[in-house]
């Protein structure tokens, strides 16, 4: 679905590349988390998926269409929706439903069809009751859900979240994660850029970035086995995983796919 072939990217005036020689494939229906510290290149990578940034070397293609081809760009952006960090700075209009309509309006969709898409998108993120609310009366988590509804109205196949939870409080973050997981269950391909390791435990695949390169890749269980690489990448494993590792060091035989409190308790109790 999405392919990165030897992608290198360097910002103007930067001394070193933000991405070096990235090869990556994201399959349809996958839920991929990209983690890394600030400046690791994770957001730069995300912005390549819908052609906001174009590679200096190598190619990025979406459904076989290279992003470097100007003619593909609208089609790609319709297929790949993207939500950003600051909930305030991505909503365009004052009223919720008008904002959700913004995308399809840009594509010249028929007014009746837009109406139908807006209603469907709002229902999908559970914000139907807020259709005529003013955007600035909503909480951060609600604003992010509206941003996602705005993307869903474009009928995308891939949802890219560029640290969309970073500015939310825990309940807002939970709200957002729940929405994303629901969309994923319904078949959406999701690419989630985040700093919160605990958000990645439910993903299909975790990609760890450092200095513009992929340093670790695998299922959450595989990735959290390599605490050393995570710490070296300035990342902190979830507290539950840290407890598990400490217990393992003390000689308790716990399996690698123990990532949640529930599972840890399940394996630990019989050993005590």
């Amino acid at each position: 679905m999405i392919r990165f072939d030897n992608v290198t990217f360097q910002y103007e005036k930067a001394f070193s590349p933000a991405l070096s020689d990235i090869c990556l494939e994201i399959r349809q229906g996958e839920f991929v988390a990209i983690v890394g510290h600030n400046g690791s290149g994770k957001s730069t990578l995300a912005k390549h998926i819908n052609g906001l940034l174009l590679p200096v070397k190598g190619t990025v293609s979406v459904c076989g269409m290279p992003t470097s081809d100007e003619e593909n760009i609208l089609k790609i952006r319709q297929k790949v929706g993207m939500a950003f960090q600051n909930p305030d700075n991505q909503l365009v209009t004052t009223v919720v439903e008008e904002d959700v309509a913004f995308g399809p309006e840009n594509l010249g969709v028929d007014p009746d069809e837009i109406r139908a898409r807006v209603d469907e998108a709002l229902a999908s993120v559970g914000m139907t009751d807020y259709a005529t609310f003013a955007v600035h009366h909503l909480s951060g988590g609600q604003k992010q859900r509206i941003a996602i509804a705005g993307i869903l109205a474009l009928k995308p196949q891939v949802l890219v979240l560029d640290e969309a939870s970073a500015m939310l409080d825990p309940s807002g973050r939970a709200e957002l994660l729940e929405t994303i997981e629901k969309l994923h269950r319904e078949g959406m391909t999701v690419v989630m850029v985040t700093q919160y390791m605990e958000e990645t435990t439910g993903c299909d695949r975790v990609i760890v970035m450092k200095g513009g390169r992929i340093v670790l890749e695998g299922t959450p269980a595989e990735v959290f086995r390599h605490t050393d690489i995570l710490l070296d990448s300035n990342l902190v494993p979830p507290e539950t995983v840290a407890v598990r590792d400490a217990l393992k060091e003390m000689g308790y035989a716990l399996s690698d796919d123990v990532l949640t409190a529930n599972r840890l308790a399940e394996e630990l109790c019989p050993l005590l």
Partner: peptide
């Protein structure tokens, strides 16, 4: 805290972790 969550789960399974434990250090 994550540790408190763990303790609750363990106590649900019959362990008797004191409720005041809320840090990794205290738990270990």
């Amino acid at each position: 805290p994550a540790v408190t969550k763990l303790c609750i789960e363990m106590n649900r399974r019959g362990a008797s972790v004191p409720a005041s434990i809320c840090t990794r250090e205290a738990f270990l």
